[in-house]
C-alpha cells in the first residue's frame, strides 16, 4: 500500500506557527465564561447586594436622618464600646496567638496535638454556649462571681465579660494564621541568629517577627473584624443594657426589633464601613510593600 500523504509538501513555517495551543491547565472558552459568571454572580448576589441594601436602607430618609440617629447618646456609646472591646481583645489575642504559635512550632512536647485542637475549640463551640459558660463561671450566682461582684469588680453584665467573650470567640484567628507560616519557615533562621550571638529576645524581634509580620497582620485584621461583629456570646454576657453594655451588633438588633430601621441600618452601615476600612488598610499595606512581600517569600 502506498500512503499518498507522504509525498505532500510540509506545511510552510508561517502556517505552522499560527496554530495556538491552549495551555493544558486552561479550560475551554465556554467553561471559562461559565465559571466567571458563577463567581461574579455569586459575589454580586451574596456579598454586594446585601451591602448595598444596608446603605440604601440607612439613607432611605436622607443622610441627615442617618447621621441624627447615630448622634444619639445610646448609639455613640455602642460605637465607643465596640471600638474599646476590639482595642482590648485584638492585642490580647495577638500576644496569645504569637505565644501559642511559637510554642507549637518551635518546641516538641507531649500533648502538642491536644493543644492545637484546644486552640480550634472556639471555632467549633457555638458562641452562645461560650457566653453561657462565662455566665456560669463568673455570674453572681457562682462562688467566684459572687465574690467578684461583692468586691466591686463584676464580670458579667459589664465590660470585662464582653471582652472575655470576644477574646474567646476570636482566639484562633492569629494562631491559625501563624502556625502554618512558622512551620513552613522552620527553625533554622532562628538557630543561625543564635549561633551569631543574638539573645532569644533579639532573635524574636529581628528574625521571627519580620518573617511572620504579614501573617500576623492578616490574623489581626480577621480577629478585629470578628471582635467588632461578634453577637452571640456577647449577647449572653452583656445583659444588653442600653447605653452601657450594648455593643454595635446588639444595638442594631434591638433597633431593628423596634422597627427603627433607619437607625438600625445606619449603625449597620458604620459597622460595615469599619470592616471595609480594615480591608482597604490591608490592600494599601500590601500595595506599598509589594516588593518586600515578594522578597521575603521562600527562596
Amino acid at each position: 500500500m502506498f500512503d499518498s500523504t507522504l509525498n505532500e509538501p510540509f506545511l510552510a513555517p508561517t502556517e505552522r506557527a499560527t496554530h495556538k495551543w491552549r495551555p493544558v491547565t486552561e479550560e475551554s472558552p465556554l467553561v471559562r465564561a461559565l465559571l466567571i459568571a458563577v463567581a461574579l454572580g455569586g459575589l454580586a448576589f451574596l456579598v454586594l447586594a446585601p451591602l448595598a441594601v444596608v446603605f440604601a436602607e440607612a439613607f432611605a430618609k436622607g443622610a441627615l436622618e442617618a447621621v441624627k440617629s447615630l448622634a444619639k447618646p445610646e448609639a455613640l456609646s455602642a460605637i465607643k464600646l465596640t471600638l474599646l472591646v476590639a482595642a482590648i481583645a485584638v492585642p490580647v489575642n495577638a500576644i496569645f496567638g504569637i505565644a501559642a504559635a511559637w510554642v507549637i512550632t518551635k518546641f516538641d512536647f507531649r500533648g502538642k496535638a491536644f493543644l492545637i485542637t484546644l486552640i480550634d475549640l472556639p471555632f467549633s463551640v457555638s458562641p452562645v454556649v461560650a457566653g453561657l459558660a462565662l455566665v456560669l463561671l463568673f455570674g453572681s450566682n457562682s462562688l467566684l462571681g459572687g465574690w467578684l461582684v461583692a468586691s466591686g469588680f463584676p464580670i458579667i453584665f459589664a465590660l470585662p465579660g464582653i471582652v472575655l467573650a470576644s477574646v474567646f470567640v476570636t482566639f484562633p484567628f492569629v494562631a491559625r494564621e501563624l502556625i502554618p507560616v512558622m512551620i513552613e519557615q522552620g527553625r533554622s533562621e532562628e538557630e543561625a541568629a543564635l549561633t551569631l550571638g543574638a539573645s532569644g529576645w533579639r532573635v524574636f524581634l529581628t528574625v521571627t517577627l519580620p518573617n511572620i509580620k504579614w501573617a500576623l497582620l492578616y490574623g489581626v485584621l480577621l480577629c478585629n473584624a470578628r471582635a467588632m461583629g461578634e453577637f452571640g456570646a456577647v449577647a449572653v454576657v452583656s445583659g444588653k443594657i442600653r447605653g452601657q453594655t450594648a455593643t454595635m451588633p446588639i444595638t442594631i438588633e434591638m433597633l431593628y426589633n423596634e422597627y427603627l430601621s433607619v437607625a438600625a441600618f445606619s449603625m449597620a452601615g458604620v459597622l460595615a464601613a469599619l470592616a471595609l476600612l480594615t480591608l482597604l488598610l490591608k490592600t494599601v499595606l500590601e500595595w506599598r510593600h509589594a516588593d518586600q512581600l515578594a522578597a521575603t517569600r521562600r527562596h
Partner: peptide, 27 residues
C-alpha cells in the same frame, strides 16, 4: 551564643528579609 562557633546551615538559613550586607553584619 558564648561558643562563638561559625555555623553554616545545610539550606544556609540566610535571613530572607535582610540584604546581604545586613545578613553579614547581623552578628
Amino acid at each position: 551564643q558564648e561558643r562563638r562557633a561559625g555555623f553554616v546551615f545545610q539550606s544556609y538559613a540566610l535571613f530572607r528579609h535582610m540584604t546581604v550586607f545586613e545578613n553579614i553584619a547581623y552578628g
